[in-house]
Design a protein around this nucleic acid. Structure first.
Length: 561
RNA sequence: GCCGACGUAGUUCAGUGGUAGAACACUCCCUUGGUAAGGGAGAGGUCAAGAGUUCAAUUCUCUUCGUCGGCUCCA
C-alpha cells in the first residue's frame, strides 16, 4: 500500500465522520480507496449534489484538526455490540475471517476497517482532495441488495497531481466522441430512437472504410461472407438457450399468434447454414463472417453514446471446426486481431473470461475450453487479465478491451469457444471413420461493434482520423473566383481521394479556419502562383506548412507513408 | 431499471414569476480575397412534453421523455 492510497482510505473515513455529524441516522456501507480517490456508501441518506459542497468544507475543516487514526483489534463479539445499529457493518463482520476485526477510531467515531490509514490528518493537505459526485450503488455490487447512496471523492498526494487529473478530465471532454460526432457531423441521436444511431454522410464514410478494411483481412484469413434474417421465431432462441437467459432483453413481436424476436445475436442462423449440407471433417474449419445487425433492449440507464447502443452492428464471425483444430484456429484469430489493431494503432488489452454461474453444459468441458484459451494466450506471450465468471453462458471467452478518453475500459473484440450451441442444435459432421461428430464453434468479433469501434477510434484520434479513414481527406481552397476552375482540375487529378473544393464566397482565412476545425488531413490552397506553376500549396493538419509542390510530388509523399 | 445532474434558436451558451437574448451557423446584399472569423441586413424559439400552484409559469411543484456521470447488466 502506498501513501496515496492511505490518504484516500483515510479521507473516506473523514467523509464518514462529516456525514455522521450532519446526518446522525445514516447506516454505513463500504468506504474504500479507489483509483484517483475514494468513496463511501451510506444508507438512509437523502442528499443532493448541492449538499456536497458543505460536506467537503466540513471535511477540510476536520483534516486541519490534526486528527489521529487509532487502530484497534477487537473481538467479533465486541464488534457486533459496537456496530449493533449498523446492519451493513454486522454483515461485514460475519464475513471477515478470524476471531478479531480491525477498527479505526478518530474523535469519537469508530469504523470497521482493515486499514491502513495514515497516522494523522496533518499528512493531508486540504487542497489535494474534493468531493466529486453522487451515485446510487447496490450493497456489495448486487442488484438484489439495497441501493445505497455513494459519495465519490477525488484525492491525490499533492495539489499538482490533483490538478493534472482535473486537466486530464478537461482534455477528455474535448475527445468525447459524442461531442466530436456533432462537431464533425458524423452521427446523431434522436429521442424517438434511443440507443439507435443516425449515421450522417461523413460518419458513413468512416463506417464503410472500416468495413472494407475488416472484410479484406477477413478474406485473407479464409472467411466467407453471409447474411442472415433480422427476425425469427422465438423457438430458435429457446433451442440455443438465449431465451432463458435474455428474453427480457429481447425485442419481441407477436405475428399471427406466434412469437417472433428481432435477432439479438447471429449464432443460431450461422448454425442453420452449416446444417444445410452434410459436412465432412475435410470441410472444416468452415469460417463465416457477417455484418450482423442485432437488437438488444439494453436498459435505458445503460445507454451511452456510441459505446452502448440498442441497435448493434457486429463484425461477427463463426467458425465450425474439429476439436484438433481449436488451438490453431484461435491462434489465427489472435493473429487477425493483432493485425487489425496494429493497423489502427491501438494497443489491445486481453482478458480471459471464465465460467459464469449460469453456465450451460459440463464443468469438465468448460475446464478444457478454458485451458485451450489459456494455452493459446500463453503461446502468443500475451499478458492477459482475468475476468472471473464473465464468460458467455455457452463458453469461455478471450475479450479485448480498449480504454476511452475517460480511461473507462470497453470490450471490443471477443473470441468465444463454444462446445454447447452446436450440440444444442444437433450440429454434426462425418469424421474419417464415417462416424457423426459434433463440431466445435468459435464466435468472434474483432471490432465488437461498428458503433463502439467508431466511438473508440474517434476518441483515440481526437477526431484526427488517419488519412485512409478521414471522411474528407483533402480540402482545396481557391484563393478567388478566378482559381475555381483550377481547383476543380486539381480535384480531378486526385482520383480516388475524397476531396472537397471550398469555393464558397468567403475569405481564405475563414475557409482555412473552418477546414482546420473539421480536422481535414490536408489543405490545398491554389491561387495565381500555383496556377502559373501548375502546383499546389499544401498545409498539413496540425498547422504544418509543406509549401508548394506538384500534384504528383504530393501523391508520392502520401503514398510513401 | 436504480441514484444524481442536466434539457432555452441548427450549434455553444446567457437569462427571467410579467412580450425571449448573444455568438457562431443559415438566407440575401456588398466585398474578389494568399493561410485560423471582411462588412451589413434578415430569418430563426409552444424555453423537451404534460399536469398543477398563481392574476400571470420558460422560471416554482409533480409526472413523463431524453441526455450525461455512477450502480447493475452487456449473449
Amino acid at each position: 500500500m502506498n501513501k496515496e492510497e492511505n490518504i484516500r482510505h483515510s479521507l473516506s473515513h473523514i467523509l464518514a465522520i462529516a456525514i455522521k455529524e450532519k446526518y446522525p441516522d445514516v447506516k454505513f456501507g463500504f468506504g474504500p480507496a479507489i483509483e484517483n480517490g475514494f468513496y463511501y456508501d451510506f444508507d438512509n441518506l437523502k442528499i443532493t449534489e448541492e449538499d456536497l459542497k458543505e460536506i467537503e468544507k466540513r471535511m477540510k475543516h476536520l483534516v486541519k484538526q490534526n486528527l489521529t487514526f487509532e487502530q484497534k483489534e477487537i473481538s467479533k463479539k465486541e464488534a457486533k455490540e459496537l456496530f449493533k445499529e449498523q446492519p451493513y457493518k454486522l454483515e461485514q463482520i460475519d464475513e471477515i475471517e478470524g476471531e478479531t476485526v480491525s477498527t479505526y477510531k478518530t474523535l469519537d467515531f469508530i469504523d470497521l476497517c482493515a486499514g491502513p490509514h495514515i497516522e494523522n490528518t496533518k499528512e493531508i493537505k486540504p487542497d489535494t482532495f474534493k468531493l466529486d459526485k453522487l451515485a446510487g450503488a447496490y450493497f456489495k455490487g448486487d442488484e438484489k441488495n439495497q441501493m445505497l447512496t455513494r459519495i465519490y471523492g477525488i484525492a491525490f498526494e499533492s495539489k499538482e497531481k490533483l490538478d493534472d487529473y482535473l486537466k486530464m478530465l478537461e482534455e477528455a471532454e474535448k475527445r468525447d466522441h459524442k461531442k466530436l460526432g456533432k462537431e464533425l457531423d458524423l452521427f446523431s441521436f434522436h429521442p424517438e430512437a434511443p440507443g439507435c444511431v443516425y449515421w450522417h454522410p461523413k460518419g458513413m464514410i468512416l463506417w464503410d472504410m472500416l468495413e472494407k478494411f475488416g472484410q479484406n483481412i477477413r478474406k485473407k484469413y479464409g472467411y466467407e461472407k453471409i447474411k442472415t434474417p433480422q427476425i425469427a421465431k422465438n423457438n430458435l432462441w429457446i433451442t440455443s438457450g438465449h431465451w432463458d437467459h435474455y428474453k427480457d432483453d429481447m425485442f419481441i413481436i407477436n405475428v399471427e399468434e406466434e412469437i417472433y424476436c428481432l435477432k439479438p445475436m447471429d449464432c443460431p442462423f450461422n448454425i442453420q447454414i452449416f446444417q444445410t449440407k452434410q459436412r465432412s471433417y475435410k470441410d472444416l474449419p468452415i469460417r463465416y463472417t457477417e455484418i450482423g445487425h442485432v437488437m438488444r433492449n439494453e436498459k435505458s440507464g445503460e445507454l451511452n453514446g456510441l459505446f452502448r447502443v440498442r441497435e448493434i452492428t457486429q463484425d461477427d464471425s463463426h467458425v465450425f471446426l474439429r476439436e484438433d483444430q481449436i488451438e490453431e484456429e484461435i491462434s489465427r484469430l489472435i493473429q487477425m486481431i493483432n493485425e487489425y489493431y496494429s493497423a489502427l494503432n491501438i494497443e489491445p488489452n486481453f482478458f480471459l473470461s471464465t465460467r459464469p454461474d449460469n453456465f450451460m453444459g459440463e464443468i469438465e468441458t468448460w475446464d478444457k475450453a478454458e485451458d485451450d484459451l489459456k494455452n493459446v494466450l500463453q503461446k502468443h506471450n500475451i499478458n492477459y487479465g482475468l475476468k472471473e465468471k464473465d464468460g458467455a453462458f455457452y463458453g469461455p471467452k478471450i475479450d479485448i478491451n480498449i480504454k476511452d478518453a475517460l480511461k473507462r475500459s470497453w470490450q471490443v473484440a471477443t473470441i468465444q469457444l463454444d462446445f454447447q450451441l452446436p450440440s444444442k442444435f444437433k450440429c454434426e459432421y462425418i469424421d474419417e471413420k464415417g462416424e457423426k461428430k459434433t463440431p466445435v464453434m468459435l464466435h468472434a468479433a474483432i471490432f465488437g461493434s461498428f458503433e463502439r469501434m467508431i466511438g473508440i477510434l474517434t476518441e483515440h484520434y481526437t477526431g484526427n482520423f488517419p488519412f485512409w479513414l478521414a471522411p474528407v481527406q483533402i480540402s482545396i481552397i481557391p484563393v478567388s473566383e478566378n482559381h475555381k476552375d483550377y481547383a476543380y482540375k486539381v480535384k480531378q487529378e486526385l482520383l480516388g481521394v475524397r476531396v472537397e473544393v471550398r469555393d464558397e464566397n468567403e475569405t481564405v482565412s475563414k475557409k482555412i479556419r473552418e477546414v482546420a476545425k473539421s480536422k481535414v488531413p490536408y489543405i490545398i490552397t491554389v491561387g495565381d502562383k500555383e496556377m502559373q506553376n501548375n502546383t499546389v500549396s499544401i498545409r498539413k493538419r496540425g498547422n504544418e506548412d509543406l509549401g508548394e509542390m506538384s500534384i504528383q510530388e504530393f501523391i508520392n509523399l502520401e503514398n510513401k507513408k
